[in-house]
Design a protein around this nucleic acid. Structure first.
Lengths: 112, 112
DNA sequence: CAGTCATACAACCGTATGGTTGTATCAATG
DNA sequence: CATTGATACAACCATACGGTTGTATGACTG
């Protein structure tokens, strides 16, 4: 297994497609192989296989061999990496509000 | 102002570019106009203007006219919409763990 | 060990994307 | 009200992306 250096371009890019988001959702259960996943979507097996590959390179899912299938499972840590970036933006926002309140001398708690 | 119906494709697509993420970060302060933002990046003004337009359509920033400039400000609520989707995936993950523990009869608290 | 099920990969095609330059609009200023 | 500063938009180009079909690899099964 390769430790990817948190490539946000790939991560958010992977999430920017409804089919792939649905695969992420389904793969939380971690029970379906690529072919089983493919049956849910109106496109070829190869197309779904490509989507899975994109999600895998983005670090959002992992595949695990079970018999002749490769079961797709969502990678919680990958999702968290993406989420944490958004968290940091919100944090910066709060810092900014706090600083503004300080400057203005507003004693009230900063609302978001 | 238009209320966009939470287009995740556009949102995550907008975040899938380092320049745009940096614009989001800078625009948290909400002080720079498009031209000022453009000076931070090794590309034309028009390119940056396009990035800003993409972020705007994604609901991640808003522009506010101040004098002859249009000051760019990130939209906290937009960021939250994106973050909440990731939160929901984590939630589903926890549900799954909980259900598995139940089935297995594991009395310990489900670890992530 | 031949067959088949599941996955992977390559080549191709149309469209979207990220960049460019050039022109148009729009608001403040002399 | 003509000029300048700031933003917007259109046309264009190269490359990336999402889909297709076809072929190759890998692992169970009779």
């Amino acid at each position: 297994m390769q430790i990817a250096p948190a490539n946000f371009d790939r991560m958010f890019g992977a999430l920017a497609d409804a089919t792939r988001r649905d695969i992420v959702r389904r793969a939380i259960a971690g029970e379906e192989g690529v072919a089983e996943l493919a049956q849910h979507y109106p496109m070829s097996f190869a197309a779904v296989q490509k989507h899975v590959a994109i999600l895998e390179r983005a670090g959002l899912i992992a595949k695990r061999r079970i018999g002749r299938r490769k079961v797709v499972r969502t990678n919680l840590e990958g999702l968290r990496v993406a989420r944490r970036l958004l968290d940091r933006y919100e944090e910066l926002w709060r810092d900014r509000i706090a600083r503004m309140s300080e400057l203005i001398g507003d004693t009230k708690e900063a609302r978001t």
